[in-house]
Amino acid sequence: MQVARAAPVLGLVFLLLLPVFARYNDYVLQVFTHALLLATLALAWNILGVSGSISLGHAAFFGAGAYTSALLSLDLGVSPWATIPLGGVLAAGIAAIMGLFCLRLRGAYFALATLAFVEIPKVITDNWDGLTRGSLGLVGLPGLPSLRLGSYHFDISGSLAGSYYFVLGYGLVLLLLVTLMFRSNLGLALQAIREEEIAAEAVGIQVQRYRLLSLLLSAFFTGITGACYGHLIRYIEPGLVYGLHFSAMPMIFAICGGRFTILGPALAALVLYPVDQFIFHPLLPAGHEFLYGAVIILAILFMPSGVWGQLRKGHFVSIKTGSIE
């Protein structure tokens, strides 16, 4: 379909030129920076989502990444460039613990277990005052240092446009990685598991190993995004980074965009979040997030393969909708 080919290219051009269009308007840049961060979360969530598992607990990884990177850079003075990957590693470690308990579960029960699991790192972070300063949160996180390439100097934390382009760059790198993953054996295995787990096992796919791998990768990148978020906002607290927001948003975007596609989740984030902020927020200062509830209800009832999934029909294996009889 023409739309499906043109849209990503037009979208990329739009995103690259946005700061110029918006005349470096602070509010527009802030909204799109956050939309891009949410898009990376949706991409990372979908590494697990493509295997058919729905997680309601990705805030656990987001918060773990944010806290690890923030504490290491604040207390030990390590450069954020070193602490951000460590945030991803700790998030993956937490995912390994989660996997130990939850990966034997399927479908609805996996989702419920992940929903409950978030409480564990949240309550521990909230109560371990000596290390995390508890519910007060962390203030004055170091910003991201500027990048130097020869004589070229790229300032990230100094200007909103710098932060915007940094998150855009990270998003594109993650998109490339996710594309490679989905086209590799890993991606094929995960899709086979989603369509028919027993058949996948029968042809020799090590189902549990691949599910664990996808959970770890998904958590790693969610943790990295969480760490970046901390250094961009410069302030984190348990209720914020472990909040339902960061569990719900990637799930909503992935399902509305199309969780069996590569681009769908990211596109949904880039469309829905600005629509929420520019249209519904001014109209309804209290309660504008009803939009996310409404779109997910509509998607699950009328378009379970998501908007982008609908446009791309025929480009991926059909979705199994019936249960095994």
Partner: peptide, 25 residues
């Protein structure tokens, strides 16, 4: 539609967000 249990979780999660925002309003 099927799978009923999983779809009901996703949809009622949306209903929860809807109700939370309604109450906030």
């Amino acid at each position: 539609r099927e799978p009923l249990e999983l779809n009901s979780i996703v949809m009622s999660f949306g209903v929860a967000i809807l109700l939370q925002n309604g109450m906030l309003f």
